[in-house]
Design a protein around this nucleic acid. Structure first.
Lengths: 203, 203
DNA sequence: TCACTAGGCTACGATGGCGTATCTTATGTG
DNA sequence: CACATAAGATACGCCATCGTAGCCTAGTGA
């Protein structure tokens, strides 16, 4: 059954950037579906419609592909502190996390990776050194420090613990409601009912 | 080399409770080490030093064994509200979570299960219906409601969000510091710096 | 236009888990 | 003490992934 002219889909051979993007896409979809431990070279190859050998030529493990994909795709948003006052900036900072969770591809992928990272410290370290660190992060804290410097809030109230509250509540929501996003207005509630009181801002 | 009395280790054939306990122990250790997706009938059998067939006789999947083991071993502590006043009770309630995290066997096992559950809603549901629900839980909330009923705090401040803060911060600590326990005094900081201000208790 | 390179295809033995069947034997009960 | 039952041991065919080898070919750029 060998045609002289095969169907276009088969004759077009992707290379370089195009192929790389397809593989990155594939590894993210794959990990979202099967979980990190279920991530396999064959699976990635199947989904990317490429050959296993092509993968082995460049990477030595599924995890390497994944980390590379994440490093490229992970959002590097620049949080504009002082965009709308303390309250709005806090809401926006926490909202960044919702955006990530809500991303149809990145969201589930990050979830899968992070849940593995809880159990594998090396992976956790790797994510920080190879994915998160290059970007910065810690938005909420930056916002808090900004307004503390302006004298709007007591600097003593800004620390590792208080800066973590917002993200931790979003995280817990994800843990308690797998596959769901927090309801509309959740960030606002976090800010109004928790963060502002903690920062000593009276409503 | 056949003594009438062989070495206890080989001649003693465990059954019933004794064997069951060994299997439960094995599945917990196993899942802590390999993660839930790595959990396998053969692995459990090896670790429990029993035969794979003995496992298949009673269960149909590694996960079933695990859930059963968790249901039996999961602590069913009765939170004594009103043991030492609002602050102390809150610290104690959050401390229950540390106890669990610190348990050398149950801690890692729960971690592994929960991280999988984030990605597998059915597992999440199963944990709630078959492990958590039978016990009650929601300690922090119970404490808060107790003192709200006494008029010590504003009932309006007690809700799903505020009741989650303590556990969520402990959870985030676990996520950010795999394999570590929060430092001594962490629960106290959570209560003093976050919960009390949120509940409107002035320090 | 031609040669080189990157990508694609197939096959391979190895490993390890799956779930089942079959047989042997220890152990507590009646 | 004999027996029914629960536990242990061994073996099987099946399947998926592993990582590598060998070869083929499309696309690119000199």
């Amino acid at each position: 059954m060998n045609d002289h002219k095969r169907p276009a889909a088969k004759t077009t051979r992707r290379r370089g950037r195009e192929l790389l993007d397809a593989i990155h896409q594939a590894v993210l979809l794959e990990v979202a579906e099967t979980g990190l431990p279920g991530l396999t070279m064959e699976g990635i190859a199947r989904r990317a419609e490429t050959a296993k050998t092509s993968l082995y030529r460049r990477w030595t493990s599924p995890e390497d592909i994944l980390i590379e994909a994440l490093r490229e795709r992970y959002p590097r948003e620049n949080p504009t502190a002082d965009a709308g006052g303390l309250r709005e900036d806090l809401v926006a900072a926490i909202g960044l996390m919702r955006e990530l969770m809500g991303d149809r591809i990145l969201g589930p992928a990050m979830l899968a990776v992070n849940s593995e990272a809880m159990v594998r410290p090396e992976l956790h370290r790797r994510m920080w050194t190879e994915v998160y660190d290059p970007q910065g992060e810690r938005f909420t804290r930056r916002v808090m420090e900004h307004y503390a410097a302006l004298g709007h809030i007591d600097p003593a109230r800004v620390n590792d613990l208080t800066a973590d509250i917002g993200e931790s509540l979003m995280l817990k929501y994800a843990v308690d409601h797998p596959g769901e996003l927090p309801p509309k207005g959740y960030e606002e509630r976090i800010v109004d009912e928790v963060l502002l009181p903690v920062l000593g801002v009276r409503s």
